[in-house]
């Protein structure tokens, strides 16, 4: 049984079908890539999985349990964490406080009672270790709305990790990161997967996707058009079609200084 099952999900906004009978799964301990041209419905899929968007039809199952109608906050208690494509850091708090809030929420009232008497310094050390791990320790005391985009994205990841999730949904996590940072980020993802976390990642940086994903699902016009490992996806004709059909408009999306053809290594 897969950790996450998206089963025949349809989302319609008025007359527009954003997600069209999409079905896919994600496994514990694996990095699953969710790619596709702009407007393919990737973020909408994430919103359905995390509960911010009710699907018109279909089901989402986490660990075998139907969570389609479960309120947003209860999904987190079941081990789900997500980051946002458009940043949702708590701008008026410092980077450290952002993680602190996540920890407070995660532990709840009962947890707080349990940690009474625990020196604040140790909790702070835990948080700092987390910030160190994702690579934003340098910004710990800065307000979250004043740090660079890349750091704010990593901060969102740190916030999720504070709740020790079993399923991580990352929406374009690497945009705003430079090449070295992206490499470190890829290593971190592999580490997390090795610890048993299931990671689903929407990403436009194809080097990163091809480098770290165990398996990839390609969305186009709300439909899952291909599923497979990186090598299979690279050579899938439908994927090439989907990307080539958009090549002019998607070009910048795939990386700052790369063209989509080289990214996908499509040859004519």
């Amino acid at each position: 049984m897969s950790l996450l099952e998206v089963d025949d999900v349809v989302v319609q906004f008025g007359g527009v079908t954003a997600v069209d009978h999409a079905s896919f799964t994600a496994e514990a301990g694996q990095v699953t890539g969710l790619i596709g041209p702009n407007g393919a419905g990737k973020t909408t899929c994430f919103n359905v999985i995390s509960g911010l968007q009710r699907p018109t039809q279909g089901h989402v199952r986490l660990d075998g349990r139907d969570i389609t109608r479960m309120p947003v906050h209860r999904r987190s208690k079941r081990g789900m964490g997500r980051t946002f494509q458009r940043l949702e850091a708590f701008g008026s708090l410092t980077v450290r406080e952002n993680v602190q809030v996540a920890l407070d929420i995660h532990r709840g009232l009962a947890g707080r009672l349990r940690t009474v008497g625990r020196p604040a310094r140790r909790q702070r050390a835990d948080i700092d270790a987390l910030l160190e791990r994702v690579g934003v320790a340098a910004y710990a005391d800065d307000r979250a709305d004043s740090v660079p985009t890349g750091a704010a994205r990593l901060l969102e990841l740190a916030r999720c990790l504070a709740a020790e999730p079993t399923l991580l949904l990352l929406d374009e996590p690497s945009s705003g990161l430079d090449e070295t940072e992206t490499d470190d980020f890829g290593d971190l993802l592999r580490e997390l997967a090795a610890e048993g976390t299931a990671i689903v990642m929407v990403e436009h940086d194809m080097d990163l996707v091809m480098g770290v994903c165990d398996t990839i699902r390609v969305l186009d016009f709300g439909e899952v058009i291909a599923i497979g490992d990186p090598a299979a996806i690279r050579s899938d004709p439908r994927v090439q079609q989907a990307y080539l059909g958009y090549s002019d408009e998607t070009a910048p999306a795939d990386g700052v200084d790369e063209t989509p053809t080289t990214v996908l290594e499509v040859t004519r």
Partner: peptide, 26 residues
């Protein structure tokens, strides 16, 4: 001290919204 620093009004730079298809410049 941390609290006070956190609340220190700083001129917050406009956040760069990075949408799909927009090359990110951190």
């Amino acid at each position: 001290d941390v609290h006070e620093d956190a609340e220190e009004p700083v001129a917050a730079p406009a956040r760069v919204e990075v949408g799909p298809g927009v090359p990110a410049r951190g």
